[in-house]
Nucleic acid binder design. Structure first.
Length: 478
RNA sequence: CGAGAUGUAGCGCAGUUUGGUAGCGCACUUCGUUCGGGACGAAGGGGCCGCAGGUUCGAAUCCUGUCAUCUCGACCA
């Protein structure tokens, strides 16, 4: 077989038109469908199952760290949204408003939540009175609405699913530690479960969240070289506390404002999975979140005994993986292509020849590698292969990111790189927002983050030539 | 929100220039033969041609409006 040859004729080739490839894949793999409401998507069972797996893993991690889940209303009264000035300015242009209840016009408009800081704060002011009430570590899984101008499945939709953590702490230090801790939870999750390498760092003032003192981000590189913010964690200081009048009595009985954080990861991460790992045959799913981890394809099933053997193997390995056997009447070749398109990490072929030899064939989705393995210890073989698939996916994503990340020292170099080499650009920055704006103006790149892992690759700012303060990752973003 | 493109069966498309009763491939249903990389034959089913107006004896086709999707910008998770 030729691994390089495109076998799914109706998926646009990734290198020909990446955007078209993306929409082909999400549709053909039956992850989403368009809804009749503008910009909204229907997440179909195969796509939703991925989200459920993501949810299960993350929710477990949040709870291990002491967070509790709650459910806030989906409506925010206009007056509440307006309490924090920067926040409302940031979100007002993209909120949906409810103006009527039935036939009656409402006295006050209600906004459909674009994020829930204001709702949490409104509640926190009632339940936080003493240092004994802190910390409050709340999270909610919900959908939010942002009236976006342009939309794409998973990457930017009018309504999307996410989780938002909102926590309150006695001190700035504690809140800052929480902010960093949660960013690391996201980063580790991306790398250890989704096989997506990420750059951890801080956003510049221009790019930070509306109302935050500091925004931290994990940035991933997609196959076309564009950056995707894959998770975010904000430190608010006591700005919202002051705006909402949240106060507690500290150990000396003095009134204090608590310090706040919020952090979120959305269904956009599914877009990151698709665009990081997918290829011309379709999806490639990281084993940890793949709805089906192993697909068993019986070969020449009519010859008898094959389907029975497949069932027997399924019963054995379902203790170690999510497995499905396709006993439909489609040809084996059709099934191979179908499950490759759906990104199933491992295929197990079982036919008369294998049964004779007490073996089966395992094929990796990530690199097409085919191996014949004995059935004696098939459970362990499967576990090892799934791990190998994850590692292989991570390695090749990391390698690609490294190959497509360029260090530049001058604006000319930056413009040239931005035009000719898709990927991330690393360059030094003096910290002046005008230089940041100039980079965007001249090279068309925005600052993605100031990485935690700082290096001094040059002494001068790439733009103005004055002494540089920070290394910045620049790029085109989704 | 600016520029461009596209809406005809579940999917991909032809038909629109020149108005005359809706077509192809895949998918679907039934039967049979197949089965280690998208099998084959036979017989079937499915469409107010995005939606709303208008012109006409007659509209997928012409006119007006509207909605949606995609791409590129501007804005954002």
């Amino acid at each position: 077989m030729a691994e390089n040859k495109k076998m799914v004729e109706d998926i646009t080739s990734r290198d020909v038109d990446f955007a078209k490839w993306y929409t082909d894949v999400v549709k053909k793999a039956e992850m989403v469908d368009y809804a009749s409401t503008k910009g909204c998507m229907i997440i179909r069972p195969y796509g939703y199952a991925i989200w459920e797996n993501i949810q299960k893993i993350l929710d477990g991690k949040f709870k291990e760290l002491g967070h509790e889940n709650v459910m806030m209303p989906m409506f925010i009264p206009e007056s509440l949204l307006q309490k924090e000035k920067d926040h409302v300015e940031g979100f007002a242009p993209e909120v949906a408003w409810v103006t009527h209840g039935g036939e009656e016009k409402l006295g006050e408009r209600l906004c459909v939540r674009p994020t829930s800081e204001t709702l949490f704060c409104d509640h926190y002011k009632d339940i936080i009175h003493s240092h004994r009430d802190l910390p409050k570590l709340y999270n909610q899984w919900c959908s939010v609405v942002r009236w976006e101008k342009t939309t794409r499945p998973f990457l930017r939709t009018t309504e999307f699913l996410w989780q938002e953590g909102h926590t309150m702490h006695e001190t700035a230090e504690e809140a800052m530690a929480e902010t960093e801790q949660m960013l690391n939870v996201y980063a580790d999750f991306c790398e250890q479960y989704l096989a997506i390498p990420v750059v951890r760092g801080k956003k510049t003032d221009k790019e930070k969240f509306a109302g935050a003192e500091a925004t931290y981000t994990i940035e991933a590189m997609m196959h076309d070289g564009k950056a995707l913010q894959s998770g975010t964690s904000h430190y608010f200081g006591d700005g919202f506390s002051r705006a909402f009048g949240i106060q507690y009595s500290d150990r000396e009985n003095k009134l204090q404002y608590p310090h706040q954080t919020s952090w979120g990861m959305s269904t956009r991460i599914i877009g990151a999975i698709i665009m990081t790992h997918g290829d011309d045959n379709g999806l490639v799913l990281p084993p940890a979140v793949a709805p089906i981890q192993v697909i068993i394809v019986p070969i020449a099933a009519h010859k008898g005994g094959v389907n029975e053997k497949a069932q027997e193997i399924e019963q054995r390995i379902k203790k170690v993986c999510r497995v499905k056997t396709d006993v439909s009447n489609q040809s084996p070749g059709w099934k191979f292509a179908e499950y490759e398109m759906k990104g199933v990490p491992l295929r197990l072929e079982i036919g008369p020849r294998d049964i004779e030899n007490n073996s089966c064939v395992l094929v990796r989705r990530d690199n097409g590698e085919k191996t014949v393995v004995s059935l004696d210890n098939i459970e362990a073989e499967i576990e090892a292969k799934l791990k190998a698939v994850h590692d292989g996916m991570f390695e090749s994503a990391l390698k690609r990111r490294e190959q497509m990340t360029y260090d530049v020292h001058t604006m000319d170099e930056m413009i040239d790189t931005a035009e000719n080499k898709p990927g991330l650009v690393r360059a030094m920055w003096c910290g002046d927002p005008e230089c940041e704006a100039a980079v965007k103006e001249k090279a068309g790149l925005t600052s993605r983050c100031m990485p935690f892992a700082q290096e001094e690759i040059d002494g001068k700012c790439v733009c103005c030539g004055k002494p540089a303060k920070t290394l910045v990752y620049w790029g085109k973003q989704y």
